[in-house]
């Protein structure tokens, strides 16, 4: 049903730390690997061994250079993973003519029901974040499921019930949890680190949050070391060595 739930019990989502993301693409391929055999299987690849290679991916990592505005930090290179933000006001859902797109009222996950989707692409037009991926081969829209087939999966050991990308990220830059609960570890992390919404002015109210790179001058580690003084030249060259040392 494309009518949005008035509220959801939980708002599950990801928190991505741009301060530690090294752009390694692990979250990208681990997502692909899990999901190509997962809930929305397969994630088709076209021309996989030739020019024009293309395919369905739920998560993609960009690289940007940020020229910091006057006085707020250094210029940087920033790696930026992008996947569905499981918005609270997702027009991708409301535009859907078939009810294939929906937002779950229990956990807030935005999903596509493949059996209903007619592949009209409208939801991908409605998503400002580019989080929807059309599988041309199957003719339906696919997207990040927040690993719905992992996070509750009783066939997985409990410790593995997290999204594939969160488990894989070698830099520990990805976090997951209930962002509706202000006391949840992710919410606290977001509060501590000043996590932000992407394109807040679009009004989609994304659940996923991004932790901005630490501003080095102010919050980054600064070593306040006094300048080095020349050692006392009184004792002549290497006079400072005179202390008794023993082996």
């Amino acid at each position: 049903m494309t009518q949005l739930p008035t509220s959801t019990e939980k708002s599950l989502g990801l928190v991505i730390d741009l301060d530690t993301c090294v752009g390694c693409q692990a979250c990208v391929t681990s997502c692909k690997e899990w999901n190509t055999g997962g809930h929305m299987a397969p994630l088709t690849d076209y021309n996989p061994y030739e020019g024009g290679a293309d395919g369905v991916w739920f998560n993609r990592v960009h690289t940007y250079e940020q020229e910091a505005a006057n006085g707020c930090g250094h210029d940087r290179t920033v790696h930026f993973p992008r996947s569905c933000l499981h918005c609270d006001e997702p027009a991708c859902v409301t535009v859907c003519p078939t009810g294939a797109s929906y937002k779950r009222s229990s956990d807030g996950i935005v999903l596509v029901d493949e059996d209903k989707c007619i592949g009209c692409k409208l939801c991908s037009w409605a998503c400002p974040y580019g989080a929807r991926e059309m599988d041309m081969d199957v003719g339906v829209m696919k997207k990040c499921t927040l690993c719905i087939d992992r996070i509750y999966n009783e066939n997985l050991p409990e410790r593995d019930r997290v999204p594939a990308c969160v488990a894989a990220c070698p830099a520990g830059a990805r976090h997951y949890g209930d962002l509706a609960d202000p006391d949840s570890p992710v919410s606290r992390l977001v509060a501590e680190r000043g996590g932000v919404d992407l394109m807040p002015e679009m009004g989609y109210r994304p659940v996923n949050k991004y932790l901005p790179p630490r501003d080095r001058e102010r919050t980054g580690p600064a070593v306040t070391a006094p300048a080095l003084e020349s050692a006392d030249p009184q004792g002549g060259f290497l006079g400072w060595l005179d202390g008794v040392l023993s082996r």
Binding site: E65, A68, A69, D197, L198, Y210
Partner: peptide, 11 residues
């Protein structure tokens, strides 16, 4: 705003 970064952002 799309990236949540301040300043000029270039791909």
């Amino acid at each position: 705003s799309a990236t949540g970064l301040k300043g000029t952002v270039r791909s």
